[in-house]
Design a protein around this nucleic acid. Structure first.
Lengths: 344, 344
DNA sequence: AATTAGCACTCGTATCAAATGAGTGCTAAA
DNA sequence: TTTAGCACTCATTTGATACGAGTGCTAATT
């Protein structure tokens, strides 16, 4: 779909103007604001063409034009100019991340706060997950009679542990043996591989300790599930309501409905390309309910390993240039902050 | 404020009817629906009196009456009749809690789900917190050179642990000594006491290991903070939008604003009386922004120890009788489920 | 003394027609 | 190829009117 220069200019004008005002854009207003050197009538002709190709549409006969999903896509891919943060905004971000706390939950709060202050869209974010982390060593440590600690050490250096109850007739030797077998089976496998396939094999190996091993495997599964589960953090719910599309209650209801189902947001984060800023427009988001929204995502990393993803959700008429800049900038600051130090 | 019987009946009729319809209640509709054996004119006279005392108000001259905050309070304290769950609802709850999973996060999800299905209000819930838990024993376990595990065992039986990095020149003997001193200082104290006061004392005692001990105390503080922090879970955001008061966008915005500040909800949970179902109406909730809402709360326990609180937030015109029954019933089911087994 | 029928009065809301005006599409001239 | 001009469309605003739900008060009734 190759457009001549003027059609591109008209399309860009429509998109930019509609993003700014949220109103349909008329031929006259384009002629006035963007001096393309032609009259409204000419622009109207171009608009008729653009509509035929499906890049813009008319809400009703006597209204201006608004971009279609395809139109936004064309704009994002070919026409959009990169936005920059103002020095003031850069300072704001630095200030928010400055009070360096070493707790993961806190730095995630900082991230939410920063993005919330920079945009009026919904921010969401998956916490670090370890599905590709490789198991290095398992330890079972007896704390007192009937109580032990299951410790799972991973290649990344993270240590996951959980207390558990044991029947009191298990001896230290028994535990040592169980530990040995577990290590034999699981060392070098990723968390995903462990939960998916091999937990059951071990069960058969250790028939002698059937009850205990059953219990331990259960706990182990719990630990792994917990660490692999997508922890979702959410912010900006009130901010996004500022967008004029949500002065209609029905729209608000739909939106709330969408974001209350965490799977929806998690799917968006999982579908994201981990190596670049991803833009999904309208139906490109794989969800029946999301046809009116757009999402921008980017992954963050710890020492180069992708650990999670940050997302922005807004109406299709969102300021893509700015949103992309913000998401990119914040994920990079976040990655930096996380890599700099050990977190707990 | 003693009201004669008929005034009470009129007030009750107004509250009940307004809770049901969300519309101002007229004298005629009362005469029709609740047969008090008097004419609308008489009821009008009573209403004028009730208005003078401040129990009801008139939105505008030619409208019916609605209960005031004081009016709801009077209703809740003196007039309200206990609601019961239908057998069908009881079954629903049992079904939801039936698929007994031993993971704390899961049972909390069950709770949210159950309440969401039973009411159209906002549900929120603090996870178990341990501020009054008493420290039984600390263990520091070396996992490999430069890596150790800090384990904190508490009287309740819960085990909290966290991995940490150590400088490699620390020997096993050093750790044993540090462990000894820490136990000496902290055994028998509650988590709150430990973080509030004594962490620094130990620091001075162990000057020889200044760097290491500093690090360990830091980790310890992180662990304790994390376990003592109010974990807030939230549900029903879309459900509450069904309430007719939220067909006005401005109201929705206010509500979202309120619930997005977690402190607001946490404060409500903390202000609750742990030993009975608490009802806060309008300004009784200590927050500028909550003058239009009401909150119902009840605590849940594990083996008799209060561990957290469940709350419902709705418009002041909420179905108090039903909400109270639901909250009471669910907290008791939740307590039972939690006490029955060990959770991880 | 308490109740109630009756009626005037208030005030929000629904209805409807007319006016408005923003915007387009088409045609014919430049 | 561009554009001025004009007829046409249609959502929105406006204002006038009617409507009706509800109250408060007074005078009659029990």
């Amino acid at each position: 779909m190759a457009l001549d220069l003027r059609k591109q200019q008209v399309l860009e004008a429509i998109v930019v103007s509609h993003i700014e005002t949220a109103e349909p854009v008329s031929s006259r207003s384009i002629a006035r604001k963007y001096n393309l050197g032609v009259s409204p009538a000419t622009i109207r002709n171009e608009m008729a063409d653009l509509e035929e190709i499906g890049l813009i549409r008319q809400p009703h006969t006597s209204a201006g034009r608004v971009p279609s999903q395809k139109g936004y896509r064309y704009y994002v891919d070919k026409l959009m100019k990169k936005a920059d943060l103002t020095p003031r905004e850069e300072r704001l971000i630095r200030a928010i991340f400055a009070k360096r706390v070493k707790v993961l939950a806190d730095i995630i709060q900082c991230t939410l706060k920063a993005v919330t202050q920079l945009t009026d869209y919904l921010v969401f974010l998956s916490g670090p997950y370890f599905e590709n982390d490789v198991l290095k060593k398992i330890k079972i440590i007896q704390l007192m009679p009937g109580k032990a600690l299951l410790v799972i050490m991973a290649e990344t250096g993270w240590v996951h542990s959980k207390g558990m109850d044991l029947s009191s007739d298990i001896t230290a030797d028994d535990l040592a043996y169980i530990e040995l077998v577990l290590n034999h089976y699981f060392q070098g496998l990723t968390f995903t591989q462990i939960t998916r396939t091999v937990l059951k094999d071990v069960y058969n190996e250790l028939t002698r300790y059937r009850k205990t091993i059953n219990h331990i495997l259960e706990i182990m599964e719990v630990v792994l599930q917990e660490e692999m589960k997508e922890n979702l953090y959410l912010g900006g719910t009130n901010r996004i309501l500022k967008q004029p599309e949500y002065s209609d209650v029905e729209e608000v209801r739909n939106l709330m409905n969408f974001i209350e189902r965490e799977e929806n947001l998690i799917t968006i984060l999982q579908d994201a390309d981990p190596y670049r800023v991803t833009v999904k427009i309208g139906e490109e988001i794989k969800s029946e309910q999301a046809t009116k929204y757009s999402a921008i995502t980017a992954a963050y990393n710890i020492g180069g390993n992708i650990m999670g993803t940050l997302g922005l959700l807004g109406p299709m008429r969102m300021d893509y240039a700015r949103a992309m800049t913000v998401v990119e900038h914040i994920t990079s600051v976040l990655s930096e902050a996380l890599s700099e130090d050990n977190f707990y």
